[in-house]
Design a protein around this nucleic acid. Structure first.
Length: 822
DNA sequence: GTTGACGTCTTACC
DNA sequence: ACGGGTAAGACGTCAAC
């Protein structure tokens, strides 16, 4: 039979010693379809150079006789073929060694440790990746497929009967076709009375999909809202949850932090209450993979934890300080969680209806977030070509690597292997490479500033100079790109890269083109989503350099990484020199940007300078105008004399502020100093002087001393980056975390710790001795907030105007001492 | 007891 | 373990005075 099919979830199983791919997706009528297929499994044995035909023939027949008896499974090499291939861009002769079962490839590879064989590759990709590469049946892409319907068939052990699908097909052929796809999604969220997994009870669970809203709960209110479904107890809640998911039959079950909370919680409670959480289409329970992060998988339904995708693809470009559902929803949806304080269930009293609403609304937000990010998830999945389950969770290096792995066939390339444990360890201990150049600014308030920056600098350098592991030459050569001199492992040297196009820079060029496309889309139609997408591809494109220097990468090359950074320094410094020569005063620059004073010249003249600079740049390297600014402020470091790097504020022609590095953008400073600093920076940049700003500071200090500052503005938030026990230095946030632990307030690694500094009796000197948690009673420590929060945030700014703010304040203090301290 | 150098830790910039 | 290096700056620790 023939039908249209879109694969969504990928899995595989063994039957009679062979592997079969199990693809779950939809047909064009929305029916759930399972497709069973298989592919050749093989590895590559790269031959040593110069073997004669006789030796090769002998080797082939020797390999063909390999038989293995492993873990009760007898397998053998099925066949061997000789191919002309490329490995790292070089022509090689390689044997394609076919196996019966994918799991045997490792063992076969270890049998191939022979003198005629140089390297063994392609046995460490994972079956699903291997299958997608072989059969080109890519995730979230429509196919016209032809195959045999399995209906009450005994084939594959009666798989069609065991699966909850509308159609089960054994694939014969497939053809890619165009089509749209609207995913069927169901969001879920649980509410519990303890945040520790398995310890508390699940009070309610909400489910939201298209035209579907439900809260299942055993905490019954007097009036039963329409969307609720009351059950007798928690065990019944779990059963009902599974039943409703099954009935809705979503493609995606979506949560927020659900890998780390909702799904493992559900599973833990199900185990405790001896309820089977049969969510999978094969009736299986969710499975969790071990690792640093928990990952919850449901057979046939793609479990998406939308937080994980947001974290890798967008977090670095978001304004939100935390990735809480509340903040993220606010930034992308303009919507927030329902205002409802979760107390212990016993404190709720009759207020269950508000709790239901809150619970339901969280799922509504998750649906909306998923819908907002769906185009991006789709785009990423199509580019990276791995199942969306994985793509939505991958870190940046894995995204880059998968994109490469799935495109090697076009270049007839054999994939490089993953580094071994020893290789990783060696890479990690080989020491770093010198990074980018940062121009030391001269502190001051400047007028009329232009800023240039290089477009995707690292990426364009890699593409232009053909830099990669495969194109790196062993020695100096005429027809090559030479890197500037770099110091690597204590040796000053240059590296040379072939001018013959390498597959790696070529592939990067494709990502780079996509980045340009989405950036243009954002400029044409600016909104949070086009911006996010543009940034997502910026991240992917910019990550390639990081990938090359990442110790876990297949295509790791420290020589390439060092060369790229040497080029980055060279082009930035050279361009600074050229701008100076053209008669401008350069005031700042970091990595790929340069800011300089316009010096009375017109915007037109500066654009001409830009054109001239561009005409002198090689390859696809490009310098662009970031913007013209009315005013800009640079300050000194705390130490005093030198200009602080990575810290400045600019005001553009539309009076938009661009603040970098100042305390006002740092979440580990209290709101009071952040708000004040932001205000005075704005004031100074708008006025061109410090007069009004100084008054603002005086006002706030007066308020502080009169204890009129809200406690909320004094809370300091710091992330707990590791388990409490691992801290050597007992900083204030570590002490606050310990207090939380004592008071049985859940505190987790990665969580934000909030505290304030209070007045204490006795001679306590250390800050950590004055730490109090927000709910703890106490008066804020005036001296601390003045000396350690307000003054440090403003003093270098006034220093630019020759004002010593401390003296100004101290003078004031003497005058009004009696008034402030009675 | 104070001071300063240095290490630890977090966060931001690009 | 799950992109990179550069940099600021707070706070704790410890030795020297």
């Amino acid at each position: 039979m023939k039908l249209k099919f879109i694969p969504i979830d990928y899995d595989y199983f063994d039957f009679q010693g062979r592997n079969y791919a199990k693809l779950v997706g939809r047909d064009d009528k929305g029916k759930r379809v399972c497709v069973i297929d298989s592919c050749d499994v093989y590895l590559w044995a790269i031959l040593k150079k110069g073997l004669n035909q006789k030796v090769v023939d002998k080797l082939i027949s020797k390999i063909q006789k390999i038989k293995l008896n492993l873990k009760g499974r007898k397998t053998k090499v099925e066949k061997v073929e000789l191919h002309d291939k490329n490995f790292l861009g070089k022509k090689v002769k390689a044997l394609k060694v076919f196996a019966t079962n994918y799991k045997d490839l490792h063992d076969i590879a270890s049998k191939l440790d022979l003198k005629e064989i140089e390297k063994r590759r392609g046995y460490d990709l994972g079956y699903t990746t291997h299958y997608i590469i072989e059969k080109k049946i890519n995730p979230l892409q429509w196919y016209e497929i032809e195959g045999d319907m399995l209906n009450n068939s005994q084939e594959f052990g009666g798989i069609d009967m065991a699966l909850d699908v509308d159609l089960c097909i054994k694939l014969k052929s497939s053809k890619k076709v165009e089509g749209n796809f609207k995913p069927k999604i169901l969001a879920y969220d649980i509410e519990t009375d303890s945040l520790k997994i398995g310890e508390g009870e699940i009070l309610m669970v909400s489910l939201v999909g298209e035209n579907f809203k439900k809260v299942i709960t055993w905490k019954k209110s007097k009036n039963k809202p329409q969307y609720t479904e009351f059950v007798e107890d928690e065990a019944e809640l779990l059963k009902k949850f599974c039943e409703q998911v099954k009935k809705f039959s979503p493609d995606f079950l979506v949560g927020y932090f659900s890998d780390g909370f909702d799904l493992p919680y559900l599973k833990a409670r199900a185990e405790k209450l001896k309820v089977k959480l049969e969510l999978g289409i094969d009736g299986s329970q969710p499975k969790f993979s071990r690792g640093t992060l928990l990952t919850g998988k449901i057979n046939g339904i793609v479990h998406i934890d939308i937080l994980r995708f947001i974290r890798t693809a967008y977090a670095q470009y978001m304004k939100s300080e935390t990735l809480s559902l509340n903040e993220v929803a606010k930034e992308f949806l303009g919507d927030t969680k329902k205002d409802f304080k979760i107390e212990h269930s016993s404190d709720i009293g009759e207020n269950w209806e508000d709790y239901y609403k809150y619970n339901l609304h969280d799922s509504v937000l998750v649906v909306k977030l998923f819908e907002k990010f769906w185009p991006d998830l789709l785009e990423f999945t199509k580019v990276v070509q791995e199942p969306i389950f994985d793509v939505s969770r991958y870190g940046l290096s894995k995204q880059v690597e998968s994109y490469i792995i799935h495109n090697l066939k076009r270049f007839n390339e054999i994939p490089e292997k993953r580094p071994t444990y020893d290789e990783i360890s060696e890479r990690r201990h080989s020491g770093g490479v010198e990074g980018a150049f940062v121009f030391e600014p001269k502190p001051g308030l400047y007028e009329k500033i232009a800023m240039f920056d290089f477009t995707s600098m690292h990426t364009s350098i890699i593409i232009t100079h053909n830099i990669s592991k495969g194109t790196l030459l062993e020695k100096k050569s005429k027809n090559s790109f030479a890197s500037p001199e770099v110091e690597l492992k204590g040796k000053k040297q240059k590296f040379y890269f072939s001018k013959e196009k390498g597959f790696f820079p070529e592939l990067l060029n494709e990502i780079f083109e996509m980045r340009k496309k989405f950036k243009a889309e954002f400029k044409k139609n600016p909104n949070p989503i086009t911006k996010a997408r543009s940034n997502a591809f910026k991240v992917l494109s910019a990550s390639v350099h990081g990938y090359i220097g990442f110790f876990g990468a297949r295509y790791y090359s420290i020589e390439s990484s060092a060369s790229i950074l040497a080029f980055v320094r060279k082009f930035n410094i050279e361009t600074i020199e050229k701008i100076k020569k053209a008669g401008y005063e350069v005031i700042y620059g970091d990595t790929d940007s340069i800011a300089f004073l316009m010096n009375g010249k017109s915007e037109k003249e500066i654009k001409e300078l830009l054109d001239k600079l561009n005409s002198e740049l090689p390859g696809i390297m490009h310098l662009e105008l970031e913007d013209f600014f009315k005013r800009g402020l640079w300050v000194t470091t705390r130490a005093g004399i030198t200009g602080a790097k990575k810290k400045y504020a600019l005001l553009d022609k539309e009076n938009n502020l661009k603040i970098r590095g100042f305390e006002t953008v740092r979440r580990d400073w209290c709101k009071l100093s952040r708000k004040l600093q932001n205000k005075i920076i704005k004031q100074i940049l708008e006025d061109g002087n410090e007069k009004k700003a100084l008054e603002d500071v005086k006002k706030i200090i007066k308020k502080l001393k009169e204890r009129k500052i809200e406690k909320e503005d004094l809370i300091i938030k710091t992330q707990l980056k590791k388990p409490i026990s691992e801290y050597i230095a007992q900083g204030p946030h570590v002490i606050a975390a310990k207090k939380m632990q004592e008071q049985e307030i859940p505190v987790s690694q990665g969580g934000l710790i909030e505290y304030y500094i209070a007045e204490t009796s006795g001679k306590k000197k250390l800050v950590r001795e004055k730490v109090k948690l927000p709910h703890e009673k106490g008066e804020y420590n005036i001296e601390y907030y003045l000396e350690h929060q307000i003054l440090p945030a403003v003093e270098n700014i006034f220093q630019v105007f020759g004002i010593n703010i401390k003296e100004v304040i101290d003078g004031k203090k003497q005058e009004n001492l009696g008034k402030w301290f009675k």
